[in-house]
């Protein structure tokens, strides 16, 4: 079986400084991978690069997604092909309601895929259902995108977007950081709901905590721009006990 995502020898620089220094990673459909690592290792850089952040410069290497050159696509094209980035710091968009944003995004993706746009009624039904699962109120959906949201609300909102957009590859950048235990539970339920044989999830996290709720198939340690160790779920526990220094 071919890989859903295949990253080979990826080098990425931000404003001239090389952050990723030859990263390799293969992900199959149906798998959940966790990437752990200390601050500054390049975790967020990897996430944003995969999602298509323009200001990040790919110096070397290839990324194939569904057997296609991912790096040749713009961010919005990647989104339409099923890549979702859950942001570590979701951005505020004043004046734009969550619902409007989400429906516009969904229909933008559908148009790119040559599908019919979803009408207002069908969309509202879908949004209500997904919101209910995540314990999100309709009031929150009417508020402006991330404006005045608490840390936990922002992360839950990311899960809401993920649920509605229904991606094939979800990359979650420290979605668990800053969450209390209830919010963590909601977020992990959201992630688990997405798990299926034809989808994959890449969890980027600083702590082992989330992995108590979402059991990964593979755990990787990222340090200084490279994957330095890979293993099963037990690697996360080892990291938690011994620290990155010892493991890496």
């Amino acid at each position: 079986m071919t890989h859903l995502l295949n990253i080979e020898n990826l080098h990425v620089a931000i404003q001239g400084e090389e952050i990723l220094k030859g990263l390799n990673l293969k992900i199959k459909a149906g798998e959940v991978h966790a990437i752990m690592g200390p601050n500054g290792a390049g975790k967020s850089t990897l996430a944003s690069t995969l999602a298509g952040r323009e200001s990040f410069e790919v110096l070397e290497g290839t990324v194939r997604y569904q057997d296609e050159d991912l790096l040749a696509l713009d961010a919005h094209e990647r989104a339409a092909k099923g890549i979702f980035l859950g942001f570590q710091y979701p951005t505020e968009i004043p004046g734009v309601s969550n619902l409007n944003f989400l429906r516009t995004a969904l229909n933008a993706q559908r148009r790119q895929r040559g599908e019919a746009e979803m009408d207002g009624g069908t969309f509202m039904k879908l949004a209500r259902e997904k919101a209910q699962n995540l314990g999100i109120s309709i009031e929150m959906l009417k508020r402006f995108v991330n404006v005045g949201f608490s840390g936990g609300e922002k992360k839950r909102n990311e899960m809401m977007q993920m649920a509605v957009l229904n991606p094939t590859l979800a990359i979650l950048d420290e979605t668990d950081s800053g969450l209390d235990i209830d919010a963590l539970k909601v977020v992990s339920d959201g992630i688990n709901a997405l798990r299926s044989a034809d989808k994959a999830i890449l969890l980027i996290t600083h702590y082992q905590r989330l992995l108590d709720y979402v059991t990964p198939d593979h755990v990787h340690v990222l340090a200084d721009g490279k994957i330095v160790r890979s293993g099963g779920p037990e690697l996360a526990h080892e990291l938690e006990e011994k620290g990155y220094q010892a493991v890496a």
């Binding site: 944003s48 919005h76 989104a79 339409a80 968009i93 790119q112 957009l165």
Partner: peptide, 25 residues
Amino acid sequence: QMFYCMARGLDAEEAVAMVVNGFAK
């Protein structure tokens, strides 16, 4: 803001229109 919108599927023009319409709301 641009990257956030684009990572959700909006192209650059749509992203601008979205942010601008919010600004003018």
